[in-house]
């Protein structure tokens, strides 16, 4: 069983219950496929580097989990189908890396720095002229 890190960008205007719902759904999938959830970090609402589906803000979720390597593509397609998820990134971690990740609880200075300063009200509604190309 290999360990993975998946970072999800959820829609920015979700409440806590909906976020928990997402986490629940993922745990469900993982338990079905012999995987397990190791750790969940909520990075919270942040400004995106570029617009994704016309929104400038997103709610970041960082998840460490184990998963069967054959089921990762299924997990990814599951992420794709789930409409609350704007974008995601799944990365395989080696044992050493995982150890470091579990140890370092608070490297989340990334979160502090880019935490949005202005309310999202004005930017979210305007129509995006430039479409950002997405690989996912």
């Amino acid at each position: 069983m290999k360990s993975y890190q998946s970072v999800l960008i959820l829609k920015a205007d979700l409440d806590d219950a909906q976020v928990d719902q997402v986490i629940e759904k993922i745990t469900e999938f993982l338990s079905k496929n012999n995987g397990s959830l190791l750790k969940v970090d909520k990075w919270g609402k942040k400004r995106l580097g570029y617009r994704i589906k016309k929104s400038r803000f997103g709610y970041y979720l960082n998840i460490y989990h184990t998963c069967e390597s054959l089921k990762v593509s299924a997990l990814e397609s599951d992420y794709k189908l789930y409409d609350l998820i704007l974008k995601f990134l799944v990365i395989k971690l080696s044992d050493k890396e995982l150890e470091q990740e579990m140890k370092s609880d608070e490297i989340d200075n990334a979160v502090e720095e880019t935490k949005e300063k202005t309310p999202a009200t004005k930017s979210e509604s305007d129509n995006g002229v430039e479409e950002v190309k997405e690989k996912n």
């Binding site: 570029y50 974008k87 950002v132």
Partner: peptide, 11 residues
């Protein structure tokens, strides 16, 4: 490149 992919940094 990973940070860009997940919109932590701009392209």
């Amino acid at each position: 490149k990973r940070a860009r992919n997940i919109a932590l940094l701009p392209f």
